[in-house]
Structure formats: C-alpha cells, structure tokens
Amino acid sequence: MPIVTVNGKSVHIQELNKDAAETIVLVHGMFSNLSVYYFNIAPLLATKYHVVLYDLKSHGMSEKTLLGYDLESMTNDLLALMEELKLQKVHLGGYSFGGLIALKMAIRFPERINKLAVIEAPDPNDDKTRGIIDEYSREFLEHYVENFTDTTKVKMGKRQMERNHRMYEYLFYQTSIKTDMELEKDFFSSPAIGTIQQATLLLYGTDSNCLNVGKYLDELIENADLIAVPGDHNIPIQQPLVIAEALLNFFQEK
C-alpha cells in the first residue's frame, strides 16, 4: 500500500499514469475516502493525466490525527503532499468538504494550482452541514444509513456499521473537527472567494441541497462555469462517468 509521510503523519495515496505530463490531484469529502474516485473517475482521467488520490487525515487508510481539520491545516497538508511528490503545479478537484479544501488551496497558493474543479462543495455556514457534526450519535448513524444512503444503493452490514461508527466516534468526540468546522462558517462570505482567478468548474446535482451554493460560487468566481448533473449530493457515486467526462473535458480545454 503506497504510504507517504506528510507533516509527520502517514498518508495513503494512489497514483495512476505517473508518466503523464500534467497532474490532477483529487480530494475526497468528510467521512469518505479516496475510493470515491478510485474505481471510475480516476481511471478515465488517467487516460490523459497523472492522477493523485489521497486519504485525508483520519480517513480511509491515512493515520489518525487529533488536530488540524480547519481549511488552513488541510491545505497545509495538501501543499506538503505536493512537495513530497515534487508536484510544482497541478489541476485540483475536490468533492464536498474536499471542494472546500480545493477552493482554499486556490486562494492560498494560486501559483501552484492550474485549473480548479469543485464538486458539491457545501456552504460551511449551512445548518444541515454543521448539524451532522453537532448531532452525531449511534442512533444518528443508523438513521442516516437507513434514510440517506439509499441513493448510493449500498446498505451497510454489521461490520461496516461498527467500522463507520468507530470512525465517526473518533472524529466527532476525540478530534478537533467540530470546533475547526465551526470556525470556517464565514468562508463563503469572505472576500477571498472572489479573488480566485483559475478556470473553475462547478459540478452540482440538480436535486442537491447544495445546488444554490453552486449558483452562488458561479456568480462570485470570475472564470467559473456551473454544470448541473442529474442526481443529488452523491453525484460522483451516482454518475461517476458523467462526472469523469465533465472533468476530463474541462481539464483538456485550452
């Protein structure tokens, strides 16, 4: 399993088509892992690009970490990963919370980011986004799995439920993720979003609660284009090929 050390912690990465001239880095969402891209999206992008996937701290197979879930720390981690892999400038894509990391990266290190793709980034000030973090309990997880994961068609068995429960318990009750996210609630109202100059693709689900966020970012970011894809917040799982093709077209456009 490919593991690199970033800021003193082990990070699980996957790289495809290392010989390609340009690199795309993809960032997954909170409580998820790099597998959201691994099976369908990354292989298509890897027909033309070097693709780098990594598991965020305490996610997937990366090392558990108590602190540093704010966007500044998460982008410090990504920059350090780019340094470790000797990537000077990359195309960057992020899904959900990973979309927020991608936006922050373009704001902080514009010289290191070529094009920017944001998939279903939520407004950190939205009650529903923060509500998930505030109200976690075992019952919450069971209810959530029962009612909200049907759109991804995968039902969790007992062992998976336990595994997920342990991850949520760790993240919610032992790490600083809740307070760190609380501090990010004004991210979208900060003038910094409007400074993003990169060509930016915004991909949102037509039935997603976040679609309005996509419209908002489309107005704020000068070189942005919004594409609404049939589906909800889970579009990369519901429509992996549509997402992969939209990303490939976008990154290839001159």
Binding site: L34, S35, V36, Y38, G60, M61, M156, R159, Q160
Partner: peptide
C-alpha cells in the same frame, strides 16, 4: 461486507 476502501486494498 467489504467497503470500497477495502476493495482498494
């Protein structure tokens, strides 16, 4: 009951 990250491994 393998999830996707386990299938990656």
């Amino acid at each position: 009951e393998m999830d996707s990250i386990e299938i990656v491994s």
